[in-house]
Design a protein around this nucleic acid. Structure first.
Lengths: 219, 219
DNA sequence: CTTCAGCTGACATCCACCTGAAAACAGGAG
DNA sequence: CTCCTGTTTTCAGGTGGATGTCAGCTGAAG
């Protein structure tokens, strides 16, 4: 699912982008009104995340523009916590939901999910992985006989990252990025450790090592 | 259940809010037409309490707006005792019920209950939860042998929230939202406390903790 | 053979979560 | 009004699962 993120604060934009990417969505970033409108003209987005406070004019114009053209795109507005009037203006102009900064990234994902479902988009129901059934939206994974496995947060993140780029090789640094979205670098073999833990729980054949390059999940 | 209260008289609004809150509903308050419409656009309410006399225009517009958008939201109109014409206009415009001020708060609760049940063709009469039978519409939960358990308001709210999103994980912030209307932030481990109490009353296995993510009710 | 990337068991630490209890609060009865 | 009762909220201490780190091992590549 392709998402347009309109946000001028680079730090926030980056955090949102990595997190949302990890949840299987493609993200285009527009930093101002002009490029946002350009993106909207050229691409069919499934959802728009919209900061109302932009350097070159109110994001409200963008929202109005979308509604004017009767594009059936769900829009979630991002506002600073003290901009109550923005929030109301946004909802009046046809936003589908809003989030107050600073917001929790999981919360964001939940809203994206809720809103796009309201629009009747397709839910990711299930992915097969070897003999497992993976339900990304529900954080759930079942074995052959339907028994539930329990993965820790990090383990799950690694698995999702691998599944997101299925049948291509994922480098360690990509996984690292997925794990530690924000700043916080890591200087040990954490990724290896988590791959190891995944293998212990799901079976050796689930992740293939590509020496010197990265990992790839089973077909 | 989430209710929108549209009322400009602060005293009355407050009284209604506290009373209704105590009966397990989350209440958002809108003091004028503009913010009422904004709220309606952003949130899915289960019911609207609507004062027709507002400072910035007739509440009738709000009612019409709801019906125009074909939102299946029950609306109860609140009118002063001498505004008979308002009442008729309201019912004509599609209100489901009305109350004449000053009204008894218990009366209000009864109407809320009646109206929302009338809407509840889709209402689940009973849900099984482990060895319990839960009757959401009646606020009732029975054990294996039919004995009635008593849950406090908040305990019940948490349980409902978990049941509403059964077999997916519910984050703490989601539960928090269900517990407290709009603004009102909470800065302690209240959710944990109530989960703990639910477990004490219903049994440990009723709620599963998903570390770092949230909670999930038993199958 | 040596070298080096990757694997994994062990461990110290941390932090999410649980829970008992006290404090704050509200409502009802007297 | 005051007292009593049940509920809500906060706090602090305890527990265990999750995490990050490392050291020693394995095995592929040359």
């Amino acid at each position: 699912m392709r998402i347009l993120l309109v946000e001028d604060d680079a730090t926030l934009a980056d955090a949102v982008r990595t997190h949302v990417t990890r949840h299987n969505h493609a993200v285009d970033l527009a930093e101002d009104k002009e490029s946002a409108l350009a993106c909207l003209a050229g691409v069919d987005y499934a959802l728009v995340l919209l900061d109302l406070r932009l350097p070159d004019g109110s994001g409200l114009d963008i929202l109005k523009h979308i509604r004017l053209k009767k594009q059936m795109i769900p829009v979630i507005v991002l506002t600073a916590h003290d901009q109550v009037s923005d929030r109301i203006a946004g909802l009046n102009a046809g936003a589908d939901d809003y989030l107050v900064k600073p917001f929790d990234l999981d919360e964001l994902e939940a809203r994206i999910h809720a809103v796009s479902r309201r629009y009747g988009a397709s839910q990711t129901p299930m992915v097969e992985l070897a003999s497992f059934k993976v339900y990304p939206s529900e954080h759930r994974i079942e074995g052959k006989t339907g028994e539930r496995l329990s993965l820790s947060a990090r383990e799950w993140a690694v698995l999702e990252c691998l599944l997101a780029r299925r049948n291509s090789i994922v480098s360690k640094s990509q996984i690292e990025e997925a794990l530690y979205a924000f700043g916080a670098e890591i200087e040990s073999n954490t990724v290896e450790v988590y791959v190891s833990r995944l293998r212990r729980k799901l079976g050796k054949e689930i992740v293939e090592t590509v020496r010197g390059i990265g990992y790839r999940v089973a077909e």
